[in-house]
């Protein structure tokens, strides 16, 4: 099994593991950010270039460093490879540049966008971007396409990560949307305004790292940080039924998949759960969802599980 050293931490991983996944095995600060790579989707990654790392030593056999920064999501590890991520100034500079490029055509309409507060691009530019912009030209605009009653497409916000395309390809059986046109002019859309209607098409909302694909049933209803995310499940004949319900009082405002620390859903959920089951009686609430303290969603959200409080009270009583 090859040994790889990332930012001074050595870990042994299986043959064929990418640098990204090796770093995720270690966890913490050394994990490169990812906008397009999605571990649950085959062939994803290699598009956004935010996960660039510097390979300072190629391998035990060939210790020469790699001449350029490599995308950690698609580069497999070699035995004795040494990688710098946060410790390399070159990487940090490159990432700053990548963020600038990603934001070139991004409208920065976060106050309007429903994704704000849980947006990967927001987090990325907060951590790696610069305060100002040097871009003075006109940002690209698109004709609005209606892609059905459940999903709202905002093409201007898209960063072309292709995650939704892979989702539609791999999770649903009838893909009707994809990338049209090329290069600078490429856009996500359906050919000849076809509505997306598949039982699992709602997952493109969860995989979208920005607010390009958002939930129409939740559109402008509230802001994510005013809601309380709760783990909940229900018996569903189409999917696992395990979801997060976003509540305001006793009302369910929206339903999403359970996202882990890398903003990837644990399991994909079906459209019935996501869009049509907003009745609290149909869900079994397990408890509050654990939200990172750094996230704005954690404001006003109590993460201590009720069972823990009850146990503490019991101890006190005894």
């Amino acid at each position: 099994m090859p040994k790889v050293t990332i930012d001074g931490i050595t870990i042994e991983v299986e043959e064929g593991t990418t640098i990204m996944n090796a770093a995720r095995k270690v966890g913490g600060e050394i994990v490169p950010p990812a906008m397009c790579y999605y571990s649950k989707l085959n062939k994803s990654g290699g598009k956004c270039r935010t996960c660039l790392v510097e390979v300072t030593k190629g391998s035990e056999k060939d210790p020469r460093p790699m001449p350029k920064l490599v995308a950690s999501c698609s580069t497999t590890v070699m035995d004795g490879m040494e990688v710098s991520n946060k410790t390399s100034q070159k990487v940090l500079d490159a990432r700053k540049g990548v963020v600038e490029f990603l934001l070139i055509n991004h409208p920065l309409d976060c106050p309007v966008c429903d994704q704000a507060g849980e947006c990967d691009l927001q987090n990325l530019s907060y951590e790696h971007g610069t305060e100002g912009t040097r871009f003075e030209e006109k940002k690209r605009v698109f004709d609005k396409i209606d892609i059905g009653k459940y999903i709202q497409l905002h093409m201007t916000r898209c960063i072309m990560c292709y995650r939704c395309v892979y989702t539609a390809d791999q999770i649903t059986n009838e893909r009707v949307h994809g990338v049209l046109k090329r290069g600078d002019a490429s856009e996500i859309g359906t050919y000849i305004e076809k509505a997306i209607d598949n039982d699992f098409c709602g997952n493109v909302i969860d995989v979208c790292p920005v607010g390009a694909l958002t939930d129409k049933t939740f559109r402008f209803k509230s802001r994510v940080w005013f809601l309380n995310p709760m783990d909940a499940h229900r018996n569903c004949d189409k999917c696992c039924g395990k979801a997060v319900v976003w509540m305001f009082g006793d009302e369910i405002y929206r339903v999403t998949g359970r996202k882990d620390q890398y903003a990837e859903v644990e399991e994909f959920i079906c459209n019935t759960c996501r869009f049509e089951t907003k009745d609290l009686a149909k869900w079994t609430i397990e408890g509050p969802r654990q939200i990172s303290r750094e996230s704005v969603i954690s404001q006003g959200h109590y993460v201590t599980h009720l069972s823990k409080i009850e146990n503490k009270n019991k101890e006190k009583i005894e």
Binding site: P111, R223, F226
Partner: peptide, 9 residues
């Protein structure tokens, strides 16, 4: 005003 909710938060 675009009702972003930042003032409220």
């Amino acid at each position: 005003c675009t009702a972003c909710g930042l003032c409220a938060v």
